[in-house]
Nucleic acid binder design. Structure first.
Length: 307
RNA sequence: GCCGAGGUAGCUCAGUUGGUAGAGCAGCGGACUGAAAAUCCGCGUGUCGGCAGUUCAACUCUGUCCCUCGGCA
């Protein structure tokens, strides 16, 4: 069976990826179905702040993997890849072209290229490691990893809380090192993907991001944050790491004026867009599209499907 | 007009007894294998307001001019 063909659109937040996907030309052999690969647009209670497609947009094509998680539920890259593979199957079965849209490059990479087959780590082990990092700092774990798995210790920085904790929990939970697992085969999805990426100058993007923040607030973002805070006060819950949620929360709790929250929100959004651009640059086989010319995206898709 | 306080990196400011300057934030670049809107790393030449003077040497002392902010008129 021939691999399923999919189109993916990446690029920084706020460049218009979602709109461009819906605006794909009508004369393509298949109408698009939209599948999300953004790690924050999965939360049901933050549709505005995470810029999920509106009801009107959703009416124009079937959408998958938007707004289906509770605020305290996490979704890791491997979990995402499983769900996305299923969604792609459903979409293709409807005779539609799967178009993946989102900002989490890591999720897309895992979907297309697979990930090391590390078994899940028992909760006790995880918790214990998390507590250790918190108390002793990542440097202590890193020092130990230098003995256990010097090759991996060399590529992660001693200050990196998440990666040191992860390497340690994998070692304690599986009895094997990260280096061992990374050398194992990565089962990858059976997809033939076109990777499109929007590019834009950050100085041009920033005013648009500022407008988007104003529009979100005008549409009720502050109420959304308030409701979310009522429902899920736990600051550690995954939703709260969404840009916008964190800043509005700080305002609601009296730590920032609304103006300060807006400035911080914009600043963090721009920094995030920059990281996304960095990610895209090092991705292989990217077809770049100028954000100022979204129609070029449709042409690139048509060419690829024809070729 | 007078008195006072200032004019140092895009912004806020440090700068010890004169030896041509450094932090935070911003910005830029990068990494990224199960938290990824996360996590982490690297990058600081700027007429030290202008001009003149003292000095081997001035951001640092002296004079003068310009500008900003207070207060008094």
């Amino acid at each position: 069976m021939a691999p399923t063909r999919i189109v993916s659109i990446l690029g920084p937040t706020g460049v218009g990826k979602s709109a461009a996907a819906l605006d794909l030309p009508m004369d393509l052999p298949e109408r698009p179905g939209i599948i999300n690969f953004d790690s924050r647009q999965v939360y049901a209670d933050a549709p505005l702040i995470t810029a999920q497609p509106s009801a009107e947009e959703r009416a124009r094509a079937p959408h998958w993997l938007y707004g289906f998680l509770e605020p305290d539920q996490g979704l890791d890259a491997a979990g995402f890849a499983t769900l996305a593979a299923k969604a792609i199957g459903e979409c293709a079965a409807q005779g539609r072209l799967p178009v993946l849209v989102g900002g989490t490059g890591f999720y897309l990479k895992v979907l297309l290229e697979g990930i090391a087959p590390i078994p899940s780590i028992p909760d006790e082990v995880r918790q214990a490691v998390l507590e250790r990092v918190e108390q002793e700092g990542p440097q202590a774990l890193h020092a130990e990893l230098e003995r256990i798995d010097p090759d991996y210790a060399r590529v992660i920085h001693p200050n990196d809380t998440q990666r040191n904790a992860r390497a340690m929990e994998v070692w304690l939970g599986t009895g094997q090192t990260m280096t061992h697992w990374h050398s194992q085969a990565h089962p990858a999805g059976e997809f033939q993907a076109l990777k499109l990426a929007f590019t834009v100058d950050l100085d041009e993007l920033e005013p648009r991001l500022a407008e988007r923040i104003e529009a979100m607030l005008a549409a009720g973002a502050l109420d959304e944050a308030r409701t979310l805070l009522d429902k899920c006060p736990d600051q550690e819950a995954p939703v709260w790491s969404a840009i916008g949620c964190a800043e509005l929360r700080a305002h609601l709790e009296g730590e920032l004026s609304l103006d300060q929250a807006k400035h911080l929100w914009l600043k963090n959004t721009r920094a995030y867009a920059k990281r996304q651009l960095t990610w895209c640059r090092r991705e292989k086989d990217i077809v770049w599209v100028e954000a100022s010319d979204p129609a070029a995206l449709g042409r690139a898709v048509a060419d690829w499907l024809a070729g």
